[in-house]
Simulated scan of single mutants.
Amino acid sequence: MARNAGKAPTLEQIQDALRAKGFEVTPSAEGSRISKYGCAAVLVASPVIGDQVGTSIGQPTSVAYKVSPGVVFGGEIARLQDRGYQKFFKTSKYELPATAQQLHSVHQFSEEVAQISGGVSLYNESLGTTSDVYMYDRVKGREAVQPAPVRPWDSSGGH
């Protein structure tokens, strides 16, 4: 894909480049749905603010994720959740444990989209797949205010 020096590629240029690399690009109600390796995401044009464009896929680019990459189950893009002990893919109907092959597919899909769109590969993302939601069982419920512990050595009024 030929890019203009100093200018981010347009959504249409990125769609053409994705098609050339074997991605299926279809219009959807939310934006442009791209898919490959059993994974999918939805891209939208990123709004231009002054001389800068959105930064949802690494460095400044003219596209952003409307729906982040995930494995497709029953036509729906599943969100990746991390529960500390295991990762899960969650749709509106199902919650399934993630397999190593699925995580590898999402990682490869995300890396290719970032490269084609002109984004950068961030260090933490290059180590493996990052999750959309982190829900650790040991900290679940800690956000609730706990009553102060009873301290018998403190004097209570009247003495």
Rank of each mutant, 00 (worst) to 15 (best):
P147I: 02
M1D: 06
A20P: 00
G38F: 07
D154M: 11
W153R: 13
P9D: 00
S121N: 11
S35A: 12
S131P: 03
G75Q: 09
A5D: 08
V48G: 02
F109D: 07
K87V: 07
F23K: 13
S68H: 05
R83M: 11
Y94A: 07
D82Q: 05
G75A: 02
R151S: 09
E30W: 01
P47N: 07
G31H: 00
G31S: 01
S92W: 13
S32G: 01
I77W: 03
E143L: 12
V53P: 04
V150C: 06
S131I: 03
K87D: 03
L96Y: 08
E30Y: 00
Q59G: 09
V71M: 12
A98N: 06
Q86W: 07
G50T: 04
G6N: 08
G6K: 07
S28Q: 05
P60L: 07
V120F: 08
K21Y: 06
V71D: 04
P27L: 04
T26Y: 03
V63R: 04
S131K: 00
K93C: 05
S110C: 01
C39W: 14
G119W: 05
W153Q: 11
G84Y: 12
V72T: 08
V42M: 03
A100F: 07
V53T: 15
I49Y: 11
T99A: 14
F109H: 05
H159E: 10
A29K: 12
I116F: 10
